[in-house]
Nucleic acid binder design. Structure first.
Lengths: 220, 220
DNA sequence: TGAAAGAGTCAACACAGTGTCGATAGATTG
DNA sequence: CAATCTATCGACACTGTGTTGACTCTTTCA
């Protein structure tokens, strides 16, 4: 693909670019993007600060490329999953959620930095926003299909439910991987998320057939 | 309370401090804290930039005070609620969640800024973290009580469930109030959150008595 | 083979923002 | 009417960003 030709002495542009990306991912494991200066990235890649700008327009731009890679990895993982919601709905949801858990765990530094950067960088914001929308749309479709075949009851608007559950995953995974103060243990996180998804999609949303005597439902 | 004595001419220290806080809350409705300089705050309060540092050690410190106020408002609202989970569990949860929705809606700018600042300012992080923990602990207690009286079934660890649900609220409200790309409409947000809380606390977490014929539960 | 083109590099600069210091001015108190 | 406390701000040092323009390799092709 790449038209390499140069050798030895000076490193090629592609190598420098990769070196910057690698430096960024490495430094992000130690500290936030805000605490990493362009000078740090340049030094890590063995170039001067102004040279950095030859490759990227800003350090946020470096993160954007890193995030693109992570997102495309999630897409591939989810796309490769069998969509057997009819036979084993609980397992199917669990596997989908598991794909997110795995990929974000593997790139927790980039993910965490992206969550922060989204708030001040519009490119990162747009990319993340677009991805979240596509995941929410996918979830919505499946929920509607489950309702249509009678496996899931009607309840709150399917799209709203899907959005809320996807946002929950984002936040809970973020907290778990950065070991924030109140957070779900990394080893339980898949169980907890799956349980909430499944009960809120397949449960009635009113207090129904629990363990003891049924309580009256308030909603009309 | 405050020992005022001065008059006229020069504004008193308390007034200046309030002016800074008011300016900050107002400017935060337009742009992020990062895009607000200390000079902007000083100008808004009618003082010079160095004078600002007489009142606050940094602009993050201003936000911290603003956040303290919002959090204490939530605490008061929640504490004032009747704890009638036994009679009307669905309504009780809904009212608690409603308190958060109302207060954060009323101070959405401060809340949003705090969510961002938490990631780089340790004081804001600690305050938010402490509050989230106390809310999660409270939720855990109620879930355990509901399980003990047989109203809610056993399931995933109560504390993990409580943490995940509280983090969901944080993220979903954040998204709703800043009208992010995938977000739940502000008018539905309470319904959606309440539905998820209730079904995940009172539902089994396995696919059970839905609309169509009951599927077997996998858990032993 | 040697000059033009292109890729890559960086010293130096302009700029914006933060936080500090020290000198000062107005009120308050004994 | 001094001493003192509160409040104020000009001027400074510092850190980090992004740009400019001149320079040096390397490749290519006449």
């Amino acid at each position: 693909m790449a038209a390499h030709g140069r050798r030895n002495t000076r490193l090629s542009g592609d190598d420098r670019q990769d070196a910057i990306l690698a430096t960024a991912e490495k430094l992000l494991e130690e500290r936030a993007l805000e605490e990493i200066s362009v000078a740090d990235l340049a030094q890590g890649a063995g170039i001067s600060r102004p040279s950095f700008y030859f490759y990227f327009s800003s350090k946020e731009n470096v993160l954007l490329v890193l995030l693109e890679r992570v997102i495309s990895e999630v897409q591939h993982r989810v796309a490769a999953l069998p969509r057997n919601f009819e036979e084993e709905p609980a397992a199917a949801w669990r596997h989908s959620i598991g794909a997110f858990v795995d990929v974000f765990a593997a790139h927790r530094a980039v993910s965490a930095a992206a969550m922060t950067a989204r708030l001040r960088n519009s490119d990162v914001h747009d990319l993340w926003s677009k991805s979240m929308q596509s995941w929410a749309d996918y979830s919505t479709e499946v929920i509607l299909a489950e309702r249509a075949r009678g496996a899931a009851p009607e309840g709150v608007e399917a799209h709203d439910l899907a959005v809320a559950l996807n946002l929950m995953n984002e936040r809970v995974l973020s907290a778990a991987f950065s070991a924030e103060a109140p957070s779900v243990n990394q080893h339980n996180v898949l169980d907890v998320l799956a349980a909430i998804w499944i009960s809120s999609i397949y449960g009635t949303g009113t207090i129904g057939p629990a363990a003891a005597g049924r309580a009256g439902s308030a909603a009309p």
